[in-house]
Amino acid sequence: MTMLARVFSIICYVVAGFFFYSVALLAFMELPSLGGKSIVMVGFLVPALLGLWAGFAFSGYRCKLRDTGLVLLSSSGFTAFLIVTFACLLATDDLRRMMAPEALSAFRDYASGFGFLILIFAGGLISLRAGLKKPNK
């Protein structure tokens, strides 16, 4: 594999990770209808999967499980980091006074948010472990 193909595969994996991160954040949003939320999440999931597939294509379809695991783990880790950071910011009174009360009303679906976050973390961990296993000889 050439260096240029490897660079393009990494760029595609970064794009895929961004969209997986976006889907994880969308899972925390509370929308009036479950169907509308599902459509929006699938709409962001399609570019994530296309970016992952493009990364596979540029890398010659080698180490698919390892690369999938790394993308899913990094996007779930970044989402968890963002949630902890936001929770710490909300713990201060200064930020609460500056924000309108309705500004946080959209992010209240903790069950689906943490459920999806655990799902992509577990999927990433399983994929990474399966991709790093060496064949028994």
Rank of each mutant, 00 (worst) to 15 (best):
V15M: 07
I11E: 14
L49A: 11
Y21K: 13
P47A: 10
A16I: 00
S38L: 15
L31K: 08
L34H: 14
I11G: 10
M29P: 08
G35E: 15
G43N: 08
G35W: 13
V42Q: 14
F28L: 03
L45E: 09
L34A: 15
M29Y: 14
L25T: 11
A27Y: 02
A54I: 02
F20L: 03
L25M: 10
A24C: 06
M29C: 14
E30I: 12
F18W: 11
G55C: 05
I39G: 07
V23K: 01
L45G: 04
G17A: 05
G51H: 02
L31F: 12
C12H: 04
A48P: 04
G51F: 01
V42E: 12
W53P: 02
L50C: 11
E30P: 02
I10S: 12
I39P: 06
V23L: 07
P32L: 03
L26H: 14
G51M: 00
E30D: 12
E30V: 08
L50F: 07
A16Q: 00
G35R: 15
I11C: 06
F19A: 02
C12Q: 06
P47F: 05
F18T: 13
W53V: 13
P47V: 03
V42A: 10
F18H: 13
G36C: 04
L25D: 10
G35C: 05
K37T: 03
I39Q: 12
W53H: 12
L52H: 05
V15F: 07
A54D: 09
P32V: 00
E30F: 11
A48H: 04
G55Q: 06
Y21P: 06
F20G: 06
S38M: 15
Y13P: 10
G51T: 00
F18Y: 11
A48S: 05
A54S: 13
Y21D: 03
